[in-house]
Amino acid sequence: MPDFKELSRSVAGLTVLVTGAASGMGRATARVFAADGANVAVTDVAGEGAQAVAAEITAKGQIAKAWALDVASPDEVRAVVDDVAAQFGGLDIVVNNAGISVRLAIDDDGYDEAWAKGLAVMLTAHQRVIRAALPHLRKSKCPRIVNIASTEALGATALHSAYSVAKAGVTGLTRSLAVELGRDGITVNCICPGPITTGMTDRISAEHKAVYARRRTALGRYGDPEEVAHMTLSLCLPAASFLTGAVIPVDGGLMARNA
């Protein structure tokens, strides 16, 4: 019988790049990884917001640096990814979290523009970040990619077609790259958050949130960003080395519930 393998459940010393990390799930992800001992590259189109999150982390004696990054810019993506690897001496983990809210009727005059922007930020950017990171990930002993999609990729809501298409594309990208990059030892997984308390959901009244959560989720509440962040961390542990191509709802049981 083979010996029992001790597999690490810590990302301490590894370097993670998180996009869209100035707020919400991205901020929570940066802080959760930092608390576990990772070196965190906090990136966001809002450079001052990224700086603020990095300052929160370093104030606790943990390691983080901030970069302004518009993930829709190919040049910025390449430059920032390479600089992160240079600053930290490598790159082990990519968390593609950056996203925007796109809510528009199919016959709205601004639909084409919203469609293009939604796909640029929430789908095309994911593959660009991954492509820029690949040379560095291939040198890592624990290469991980986690793409953040949404339960809108699994079941749609009216007026969210551009958003849903982008998020469904992320699940397809995840599965395809899991197969393609598996021989390099790079795992690629996807999280589909359900109703989470973030800046994107601030416009929804507390009363409406409570009614929706009671009707739609098994747990009867909205989730916290940290609850998604901890699942992201779990997918990136050295011990998660045989998990790839997974699409995991973190949704309080929303997708499991029929009525």
Rank of each mutant, 00 (worst) to 15 (best):
L119R: 00
I248K: 10
L69P: 00
V102N: 08
A79F: 07
R27F: 11
D75F: 14
V16L: 05
D83T: 11
H160R: 14
A86V: 07
M231T: 14
A85M: 03
A54W: 11
G90L: 11
P2F: 15
G245K: 06
G37Y: 01
Y163M: 10
D75C: 02
L137C: 04
S205N: 03
D251T: 06
V250D: 02
G199D: 09
N189K: 10
R31Q: 13
G220A: 08
D112S: 11
G172M: 11
A158H: 14
L14F: 07
V146C: 12
H136G: 04
R9H: 13
L91Q: 05
L119V: 02
N39V: 12
A239F: 01
V188F: 10
F88P: 07
P238G: 11
C236L: 08
I100Q: 01
E113T: 13
R215T: 15
D92W: 03
M122V: 08
I248H: 02
V95W: 02
V80G: 09
F33T: 10
E226H: 10
A28E: 02
V102H: 05
R183L: 07
A72E: 15
P238R: 00
T157F: 08
A64H: 11
T244E: 00
G89S: 07
G252E: 05
M122Y: 06
P74S: 00
E113A: 15
L235S: 14
D224W: 13
A162G: 10
W115M: 12
G194A: 00
V228D: 03
V81N: 07
I145E: 07
L154D: 03
V32I: 13
G252V: 12
M25T: 10
V95D: 05
N39D: 12
V188H: 01
A116W: 06
V211L: 09
L119Y: 05
G110C: 04
N258L: 15
S10N: 11
K65R: 06
M122G: 08
G90I: 14
R78C: 09
L123G: 05
A114Y: 05
K60S: 15
F88Q: 04
T19K: 12
D3K: 14
Y163Q: 14
I145R: 01
P74D: 01
A259N: 12
L173Y: 00
S8C: 04
P225V: 15
A229D: 08
E207S: 04
V170M: 10
A50R: 12
V84N: 09
K141W: 00
G90P: 06
V121I: 13
A86P: 00
P143N: 03
A210T: 13
Y163K: 09
D3L: 15
V18D: 09
